[in-house]
Design a protein around this nucleic acid. Structure first.
Lengths: 215, 215
DNA sequence: ATACTAACCGACCGTTCGGTCAGTTTTATC
DNA sequence: GATAAAACTGACCGAACGGTCGGTTAGTAT
């Protein structure tokens, strides 16, 4: 009776599998809509085993959050200052951050969900720290650009940074909606979106003097 | 001589009270985290009475959604085209929409929560319709501005509209987070925020071309 | 009064929730 | 092999969930 299931080699159980399953489900449906049984099933283990590794549902959620935050911070660190003009650096940073977001949708959705849900304080402070970190880097970048005369000095650097964050975050959030709007054709390609946003942010919507052209 | 309370007596029971309580709780915590008992308590009635007026939790949720959507559409309709340049009209429209958002936070949060949650299809199509309506108006406004030569013709009008929506929506969502960031001081006043955003969108971040030219 | 109906409620049902317990299997150490 | 810690599990608990039932009020028209 040594009958061994020779099917999926997917490692069952283990903290890794539990964390992964929990992250998926929490990001998808939120804290309250996910049951421990569902997590145990997806992680291919038993419910008490989750309680063996993590003391409670809240602790498991915090562990998932911490992991997501750590990943996000690492990705941000990898986006170290590139050479070039500040426009270039800001553009590169924004595009890289959008790439990070799209490459780790679950973590992003989890952090965003927590940071933006006005309700509980489960991991809100943790999530806010991440958003704050990203925001501070962008503000510094704009401020430096202003000091070098590359950006207008009469705009609030925090407001400029906000618009970069808002564009990226809302792009991520609203992608499923935008894709079905008939007017939208930038939703499919992130790089096009990124360069388009930066063009508007840098040059504005109004025509330049020499730019009024023919047709 | 049982006299009625003539002071601020929140009328108990009734569909109105149920809908109001449900909207508050659903917007605050989301569908799954709200129990029918909690709604009945906040509405000052009994749980079976909710099932008398609305057949199920899902139907109640849809009724709340429909009400929120109707309110949102009415508010959008009230923002009729103002005279003036397209910059002015776009600016006014955006500022008015942000005012609407902030004046009806519960409805907005409810719709946004539904539109942006990748998960269920409970009221997603309904919410998408609202976002699409708002979006279409903005796109038309930008396109008209382009045809009149007031806006650059080489930008995607949908992208410009997207940035207006993103700024407003993300401002609403992230206000609790932004208020605690040290660099931010635009979060307290919506009108300042709105004019600042429009300034960046119209004129861009870079200094004017007469001032500094690209090399 | 009678009759009918919408509004409303206490008590309850089956199910599922987060969490626990007692016990078994795996794994590492000697 | 002995042993002990760690990993893991089926069965179970009280509480809360969405939802239902039988019955009671309040209004209204005849």
């Amino acid at each position: 009776m040594h009958s061994e299931l020779s099917s999926t080699k997917k490692f069952s159980g283990g903290e890794k599998a539990i964390l992964e399953a929990a992250e998926t489900l929490f990001a998808e449906k939120g804290f309250d809509a996910v049951s421990m049984s569902a997590i145990s099933q997806l992680a291919n283990t038993s419910k008490p085993n989750i309680y063996h590794h993590f003391g409670s549902k809240n602790e498991l959620y915090l562990a998932v959050m911490k992991q997501a935050v750590r990943r996000s911070s690492e990705l941000l660190d990898a986006l170290e200052d590139t050479p070039g003009t500040f426009s270039q650096r800001l553009s590169d940073f924004s595009a890289g951050q959008l790439n990070n977001i799209l490459a780790h949708k679950r973590s992003t959705q989890l952090i965003l969900r927590e940071a933006l849900s006005g309700g509980s304080q489960r991991g809100q402070t943790i999530a806010k720290h991440v958003v704050g970190e990203l925001f501070a880097r962008l503000v510094a970048m704009v401020t430096n650009g202003q000091h070098k005369g590359e950006f207008r000095g009469d705009v609030d650097p925090a407001l400029a940074a906000f618009m970069v964050v808002a564009a990226n975050m809302f792009f991520f959030q609203a992608a499923p909606v935008m894709q079905h709007l008939p007017e939208v054709n930038f939703a499919s390609e992130a790089s096009n979106f990124s360069s388009g946003v930066m063009d508007i942010l840098f040059n504005g919507l109004q025509p330049t003097n020499q730019d009024t052209e023919e047709h």
